[in-house]
Design a protein around this nucleic acid. Structure first.
Lengths: 210, 210
DNA sequence: TAGATTGTTAATCGATTAACAATC
DNA sequence: TAGATTGTTAATCGATTAACAATC
């Protein structure tokens, strides 16, 4: 199957959430591309194209089987295979992510949290005992961890990324505002929270001018 | 000036962060589009186009004045005008946002936090005394607040969005996974955190296949 | 001047949307 | 069958990249 672009992946995630919620709530068995499109404000043709990309075949005049669609997306994105993650940096955001209960839906489980603050090591944060940084590499190696979540201050993020990669991590979910240099086989997904303020400030500026 | 697309706004934010850091750290006075492009992994032509869009004029053979570039972006995005925000929902993520110190750089100040949990009301979270929901509308009206940050459970987000809009809010920074219906003059910026897991799970699945 | 960099037009690329025959 | 919906090709749109004359 052709490699899916990031835009397609994100739409698939939106379909998935919508379909699982709809299925749970309304017990509908089929759904049309038009209905999905309307709910998610996406073009119906787009929905059909994306569904075709994950191998879904619709039924003329009826639409798509909801369960089948969920399953196809789940398998394509890999939510059915579970994978373990370590969290590095137990500040406010790190704590929020540790406490977030819904990641398992997407196959992800945070199995350890690391920090280098002596005050925090040994403490429990959202059910995880915070481990010292020196245990980072051995832990990743032993458990064959492939995903790390980075929520540290910006100035240590590249150094930590290097250590994570050296330990064998294949993807970094980067919540620090720093771009990370990594080998080509390692995925970095950046979630720079305050970037949204560009759009917000720009909009509010315009509003004020009215 | 033509309305800037979201993509341009986000790049402008990245330039801004890079330029302010560079200016602080290295005391360089000028920078070329090529240098910015290399650091941020963007095409140099793109950088020049974006700079042209905010009215910046470069100097042949020299590049752009760093301070002037910062100022132009700051003024275009509206970071120079400060605006107040309320935060609704003081869970883990809400607390993390309240504690985040860097929003002022972009003109934003969180001036109040609201929750409807009796346990939390009156408590202090990151320096803010949590207020009850019934004070939401009067507070927004009195202070003429135009931005609300929404970090509540998904099932109450549309109801709260309606209340926020009715109170006069012009932008909602939405950290809940629900799409919000609002009037056309109100901006909703969605930051659905777990959407990134689509890309991550997909990448890890591929890796595993190797 | 020589040469590096800008500013801008043209070409390319990819994503989105429109159109419509095929299907159930 | 009639009609709604799919699947797919073609057209459009917008964003990115290439090319290169103008500039300092």
């Amino acid at each position: 199957m052709a490699r899916l672009s990031r835009l397609v992946l994100e739409r698939l995630m939106r379909y998935y959430r919508f379909l699982t919620e709809t299925a749970a709530k309304e017990a509908v068995e089929t759904i049309t591309s038009g209905e999905i499109a309307e709910a998610l404000e996406i073009d119906p043709t787009q929905v059909r194209k994306d569904f075709a990309a994950v191998g879904l075949i619709g039924m003329g005049r009826v639409g798509f089987d909801v369960c089948e669609a969920c399953r196809a997306i789940r398998v394509t994105l890999g939510f059915n295979r579970s994978y373990e993650a370590v969290l590095v940096g137990t500040g406010h955001l790190g704590g929020a992510l540790l406490a977030y209960p819904n990641f398992v839906r997407y196959g992800m489980r945070i199995v350890a949290a690391f920090d280098n603050d002596k005050q925090k090591i040994g403490q429990t944060v959202a059910g995880q005992i915070v481990k010292p940084m020196r245990m980072l590499k051995p832990f990743i190696k032993r458990r064959k961890i492939r995903l790390a979540i980075l929520t540290t201050p910006a100035h240590v993020s590249q150094m930590l990324a290097d250590r994570l990669v050296a330990a064998g991590v294949k993807a970094i979910w980067n919540f620090t505002p720093t771009g990370l240099a990594v080998p080509p086989d390692v995925l970095v997904r950046n979630e720079h929270i305050s970037i949204g303020l560009a759009e917000i400030a720009y909009h509010l500026k315009d509003q004020a001018a009215c």
